[in-house]
Simulated scan of single mutants.
Amino acid sequence: MRWFEIALVALTFATGIIWLLDRLFLAKRRAERAGLLEAKEPVLVDYSRAFFPVLAVVLVLRSFIAEPFRIPSSSMMPSLLIGDFILVNKFAYGLRLPINNQKIIAIGEPKRGDVAVFRPPHHPEQDWIKRVIGLPGDTVAYRDNQVYVNGEPLTYRPLGRYIGKGRGADMTGASLMQEDLPNRPHPVLERDDLPFFIQGEGEWTVPAGHYFVMGDNRDNSEDSRFWQTHFLPESNLRGKAFLIWMNFDRSAGGIDFSRVGSGIP
């Protein structure tokens, strides 16, 4: 949605400049020309004065406080479903300028297990969402459907078979498990019915200033395991996902009120 971000910044800047120029110079000139008559305000100035405060508030909130995103794919199932609308904390990983995402104030860094929104290095015009598995300096391995962090295998607790619905119904029957990432246990899905082949296996050491990210839907996620560079640069981070505020999936019957207000594991 970079086009929306660009449009919002441009409109805020334009209306602000028009309103400021009118307040400092043009309004006085109109009053002098009108004399005793009431000076008529141009339509452009009237709209700019009315819309600038609204646009400025939206820009500040969206750029530095919280931004809404919609989940378009199944890569984070079962934690996040297709059609979830989420809120992303925009200051969790530092205050960043809109459009170019340049960090201007360092506040915090991702923690292992965070669900982060970012711009992937091979698709910088898109916003993606995955879970942070590896921090700078970590060695992450993935073998036989198991994650290892710094040589230690994560433990898994079976939770039964997953039952999907709507656009996620094709994941029905997948193994639902709890992955015990330290301080951040969360559910993951694994398919047992796929033909045997190497599914993103390997071992990677995360360089400084980068992160290793994975989707919770392990057999249906284009994540760090498959990227040519494998790692997410810190400069590509957009924020930390923390709340589901709406779910709408037409194929599942519309709004799922049970997900409204849910936190993100």
Rank of each mutant, 00 (worst) to 15 (best):
L26V: 14
L26Q: 13
K28Y: 10
R29E: 15
R29A: 15
A31R: 13
A31V: 13
E32V: 08
G35S: 09
L37K: 12
A39I: 03
A39M: 09
K40Y: 06
P42T: 06
P42E: 10
P42I: 03
D46V: 11
D46H: 15
D46Q: 13
S48M: 00
A50Q: 12
F51M: 14
F52L: 05
P53R: 08
V54Q: 09
V57R: 07
V60L: 13
V60K: 02
L61I: 10
R62L: 09
S63Q: 06
S63A: 11
A66P: 05
E67N: 07
F69N: 04
F69S: 07
I71C: 06
S73V: 06
S74I: 11
S74F: 01
S75A: 14
S75E: 01
M76C: 03
M76D: 05
M77F: 11
P78G: 05
P78I: 09
P78H: 03
L80T: 00
L80I: 10
L80C: 10
L81T: 10
G83Q: 04
D84K: 01
D84N: 09
I86K: 01
K90D: 09
F91W: 14
F91K: 11
Y93I: 03
G94D: 06
R96I: 00
L97E: 10
I99S: 07
N101P: 02
Q102E: 12
I104Y: 14
I105W: 15
E109P: 01
P110T: 11
K111P: 02
K111G: 13
R112V: 08
R112S: 02
G113S: 11
V115W: 05
V117G: 02
F118K: 00
R119E: 13
P120T: 08
P120V: 09
